[in-house]
Simulated scan of single mutants.
Amino acid sequence: MNCQPPSQAPCLLACKENAIEILGGAITINSDNCTRCRDCVEVCPLDVIKI
């Protein structure tokens, strides 16, 4: 949620499954699309994504 601008968040760009979305300005993970590959976890500079 702290990446600015959200559209350039490393997790959003790294997700091959389009499971990371921006809703109301917040970055969220769509669990229906997430395959738990952990690519987003590896690139998150804030270490806030837990799978």
Results as ranks from 00 to 15, higher is better:
residue 35 T to S: 10
residue 31 S to P: 04
residue 23 L to G: 00
residue 25 G to V: 07
residue 35 T to H: 06
residue 50 K to L: 07
residue 1 M to L: 04
residue 48 V to C: 11
residue 1 M to Y: 08
residue 26 A to V: 13
residue 48 V to S: 08
residue 20 I to H: 09
residue 9 A to L: 01
residue 39 D to F: 08
residue 30 N to A: 07
residue 2 N to G: 13
residue 51 I to G: 07
residue 25 G to F: 04
residue 32 D to P: 00
residue 30 N to G: 04
residue 33 N to S: 12
residue 48 V to H: 03
residue 44 C to T: 02
residue 31 S to W: 05
residue 40 C to I: 04
residue 28 T to M: 14
residue 42 E to W: 10
residue 27 I to D: 06
residue 33 N to K: 14
residue 41 V to Y: 14
residue 28 T to K: 14
residue 3 C to K: 00
residue 44 C to K: 09
residue 38 R to H: 11
residue 5 P to G: 13
residue 7 S to C: 09
residue 28 T to Q: 15
residue 6 P to I: 01
residue 4 Q to N: 11
residue 47 D to G: 13
residue 7 S to F: 04
residue 36 R to Y: 10
residue 23 L to F: 11
residue 11 C to H: 04
residue 45 P to V: 01
residue 46 L to T: 10
residue 47 D to V: 04
residue 15 C to H: 09
residue 15 C to G: 08
residue 19 A to K: 08
residue 9 A to M: 02
residue 29 I to R: 12
residue 43 V to A: 09
residue 49 I to C: 04
residue 39 D to S: 13
residue 33 N to Y: 11
residue 23 L to T: 12
residue 46 L to E: 15
residue 35 T to M: 08
residue 49 I to H: 06
residue 24 G to V: 05
residue 11 C to F: 00
residue 42 E to M: 09
residue 10 P to R: 04
residue 31 S to M: 12
residue 2 N to L: 13
residue 44 C to G: 05
residue 3 C to N: 06
residue 5 P to V: 09
residue 31 S to N: 05
residue 19 A to I: 05
residue 33 N to T: 03
residue 34 C to F: 03
residue 40 C to L: 05
residue 36 R to Q: 10
residue 3 C to G: 06
residue 32 D to F: 11
residue 36 R to K: 10
residue 3 C to W: 02
residue 51 I to A: 05
residue 6 P to M: 03
residue 28 T to D: 01
residue 27 I to Y: 01
residue 20 I to R: 11
residue 12 L to P: 07
residue 24 G to T: 09
residue 33 N to P: 00
residue 28 T to A: 13
residue 50 K to V: 12
residue 13 L to E: 10
residue 21 E to I: 05
residue 26 A to F: 15
residue 5 P to R: 06
residue 27 I to T: 14
residue 22 I to E: 11
residue 10 P to F: 07
residue 31 S to C: 00
residue 28 T to N: 07
residue 43 V to N: 00
residue 37 C to R: 03
residue 39 D to R: 13
residue 5 P to K: 08
residue 9 A to G: 02
residue 20 I to L: 15
residue 46 L to Q: 12
residue 40 C to Y: 08
residue 38 R to D: 13
residue 16 K to L: 09
residue 7 S to Y: 02
residue 4 Q to W: 04
residue 18 N to V: 00
residue 9 A to P: 00
residue 19 A to F: 08
residue 8 Q to W: 01
residue 27 I to G: 12
residue 10 P to M: 11
residue 50 K to N: 12
residue 18 N to G: 12
